[in-house]
């Protein structure tokens, strides 16, 4: 992952998610993964974000439940550094 940048990030309203997984293949940088152990209040698995988002908003466009809020950083940040503080 060395040299990779996070150009943006998401806020995920996991309680809206119905676990359809359409966002997973839609995400080009492959930084969305479904939970396998945690479920929301409706009982669904939901997506989580890893560093490396490009703010392409493909997830938001395809999501039937409008789960995603998409932010584009003013300045890109190295993925290794993003986790400490978005």
């Amino acid at each position: 992952m060395s040299g990779a940048l996070s150009r943006g990030t998401l806020v995920i309203d996991v309680e809206r998610c119905k676990g359809c997984e359409l966002c997973i293949p839609a995400c080009k940088p492959r930084v969305l993964t479904m939970t396998t152990d945690k479920r929301n209040e409706m009982g669904y698995f939901y997506p989580e974000l890893e560093p490396g988002c490009t703010a392409c908003h493909a997830c938001a466009l395809i999501c039937p439940d409008f789960v995603f809020q998409v932010w584009r950083y003013d300045e890109a940040v190295a993925v290794e550094e993003e986790g400490s503080e978005r």
Binding site: M1, G8, T9, L10, V11, I12, D13, R16, V31, T33, E48, L49, E50, P51, G52, A55, H57, A60, L61, F66, V67, F68, Q69, V70, W71, R72, Y73, D74, E75, V77, E82, G83, E85, R86
Partner: peptide
Amino acid sequence: SEILETATPPKRKAKLVDDF
């Protein structure tokens, strides 16, 4: 990879692309 905290908006300066 580590999972990012995505419950609240980012603290870094950023522009909203898509709202809920």
